[in-house]
Amino acid sequence: MIKRLLALLLIGGLGGVFLLLWLDFTPPTELNEVARYYAEQSAPDLGTVNITTAIIVTYRGLDTLGEVTVLFLSAAVVGMVLVRGRRRTAATAEGLVSGGELLASGSRLLVPLILLLGVYIFVNGHLTPGGGFQGGAILASAVLLMLLADPTRRFSHRLITLVESSTGLSYVLLGVVGIVLAGGFLDTRILPLGEFGTLFSAGAIPLIYSLIGLKVGAEFASMLANLSETEAL
């Protein structure tokens, strides 16, 4: 009981801090200096329609590289932690309920469409709301659907690892090319900016975001595959 009381006290204190912040907050009416710079300069500088994409891929590209690295690390550790539980034997696979006819047929129809949608979303990341992370998550949702339809399905870990490492390597290499040909590491102006608002524009941003999309998709797919391959306890 005393523990619950202490927890309530802590939450109360934190709630008080939040309440002060909340009462003091007035929504801004103007953009601050940084945001105004992004709003005015990202289109002439980088040729992106979606300003958030310009921030993620170019202005804060190093952060995104770090983010992809964190994601890779967590996927790798998930694989490492679960590695002993892997290789579900035929005997334990017996107990798995299959997804049923509806889900199996539905997934055959839907998986290609979902993959297409994912690719569309990350290829158009510089033009529409969307991008590599969202598109990659959609790609992985196709993998999830296949696993739901048939829990005993196995994916090639070699293929997933190949996609993951080759896209990651190309991402870093593109960043290094930026040092040579443009302003610095991960500068996307290594390719011509092209016509504003078209698919082949914004320099290397669509290329980098597609690589990120494939990498995130492979990352999530490897997590899902690892989780599904652990044996039932």
Binding site: L31, T52, I56, E67, L71, V216
Partner: peptide, 17 residues
């Protein structure tokens, strides 16, 4: 402001990991 959106995009992905 586009910056918080970029930050939250990062945070969501890291949160999932």
């Amino acid at each position: 402001d586009p910056l918080p959106q970029a930050l939250v995009l990062t945070a969501i992905v890291i949160g999932l990991g």
